[in-house]
Amino acid sequence: QTVHVKGVQYHFPNPEEAVKFALKVAKDLGGRVEFHGDEIHVE
């Protein structure tokens, strides 16, 4: 599972961890989380 944050990719073997990370980052940055297939983008 890959999380993209402002052009940087973070790889997580566990999808659940990836989602938790993405939600935390989005909250910290005041952004939103978008799901694109296997990828999660924080915009």
Rank of each mutant, 00 (worst) to 15 (best):
D38Q: 12
G7K: 04
A26T: 03
D28Y: 11
L29G: 05
L29Y: 10
A26I: 05
D38L: 12
V33L: 12
G30E: 06
A18C: 03
R32H: 12
K27M: 13
P15R: 15
I40H: 02
F21K: 01
A26F: 03
F35R: 06
R32W: 15
V3G: 00
F12G: 00
N14L: 06
E17P: 02
R32L: 07
Q1E: 05
N14V: 06
R32V: 11
V33K: 00
P15T: 14
G37H: 08
G7F: 04
K6E: 11
V19K: 10
V3K: 00
V3I: 03
P13K: 13
Q9W: 12
A18L: 01
R32P: 02
L29K: 05
T2N: 05
D28K: 12
P13Y: 10
E16S: 10
T2E: 04
G7I: 02
V5F: 10
H4W: 15
P15N: 12
V8W: 08
K6D: 15
A18W: 02
N14T: 14
E16C: 06
A22S: 03
P15G: 10
A18Y: 00
V42Y: 02
V33S: 01
G37F: 06
A26G: 03
H36F: 11
N14C: 04
E34W: 14
H11M: 08
K6Q: 13
G31P: 00
L23K: 10
A18D: 00
G30C: 06
V42F: 03
G7V: 02
A22H: 00
A26K: 02
E43Q: 13
D28H: 11
F21M: 03
K24A: 14
T2I: 13
K27D: 09
F35C: 05
V8M: 11
V3Y: 00
R32M: 08
E43K: 15
F12L: 04
Q1D: 05
K27P: 01
G7T: 04
F12Q: 01
D38T: 12
T2D: 04
V19M: 15
Y10N: 02
V3T: 01
Y10P: 00
V8N: 08
Y10G: 00
G30A: 08
H4S: 09
V19R: 11
